[in-house]
Design a protein around this nucleic acid. Structure first.
Length: 222
DNA sequence: ACATTAATACGGT
DNA sequence: ACCGTATTAATGT
């Protein structure tokens, strides 16, 4: 447990004993791909620590479409905004096998009171998340679908790179539906935008992992 | 919406 | 564990 916590940037300037006290309140649970980790209005409020794996955080609109806010990986935190009553929490679903640590919101609050640096760290962390979502907002509103797709792929290849001899592979096994949910497009439009990229040899799919062969061309489009 | 293809689950060995 | 096949999921148009 302690070993996992050391991977959290948030705890960079925390001592071993600080983390030790942290683990006292922390429980862990494993989730399979596709399992729901957090549903909105969960009566038991917790703060979640993603120790292993990747999750998608999303809302479902009135027509049942998913809108993915962000994909998180090991070392990231979620469920923090559950403290705000008015906020309708998003859903969190595992994209692959995950190990998730969690603690009661009240315990987390106590820890923040004991360690004011933690408050500041969390404040910065939430601010960063807000900025990334704000940045994506104007993109979604003003760009066409191929541009949005190109930008998404470039961003994901930067955030989740896996180097291969043929190019940079995005280390996420997303379906076209999930890609569509990330760029606010229909699945069909996403497929139609993706295929020209493939035909031009800008990217390739190996076992559903997207591998960028020509980032420059995508860059130009974006 | 439908036809095609890819991925997974299942059962037998 | 491996293979072939049935079933389901993802994709292309």
């Amino acid at each position: 447990m302690l070993w996992y916590l050391k991977n959290f940037n948030i705890f960079d300037n925390f001592s071993e004993s600080d983390l030790e006290s942290f683990t006292k309140y922390l429980r862990a649970e494993e989730f399979d791909k596709g399992e729901t980790i957090l549903i909105p209005h969960d009566s038991e409020r917790h703060v979640y620590f993603l120790m292993k794996g990747k999750v998608k955080v999303f809302h479902i609109d009135e027509d049942g479409r998913e809108i993915i806010l962000v994909i998180l990986r090991e070392g990231e935190i979620f469920g923090l905004l559950a403290v705000i009553e008015e906020y309708s929490n998003p859903l969190v679903v595992a994209l692959e096998e995950c190990l998730v640590g969690y603690m009661h919101e009240s315990d987390f609050q106590n820890l923040m009171e004991e360690k004011p640096e933690l408050c500041f760290t969390i404040y910065k962390y939430i601010g960063k998340r807000l900025i990334t979502i704000e940045n994506r907002l104007d993109e979604l509103l003003f760009q066409d679908i191929p541009t949005r797709l190109a930008r998404l792929l470039l961003r994901l290849s930067r955030e989740y790179p896996r180097e291969r001899d043929c190019g940079v592979q995005i280390d996420l096994r997303l379906t076209q539906q999930e890609i569509a949910d990330l760029i606010g497009a229909s699945r069909e439009a996403t497929s139609a935008a993706l295929n020209p990229f493939k035909r031009n040899g800008w990217l390739e799919l190996h076992q559903r992992y997207i591998c960028l062969h020509n980032s420059e061309a995508l860059q130009e489009l974006a």
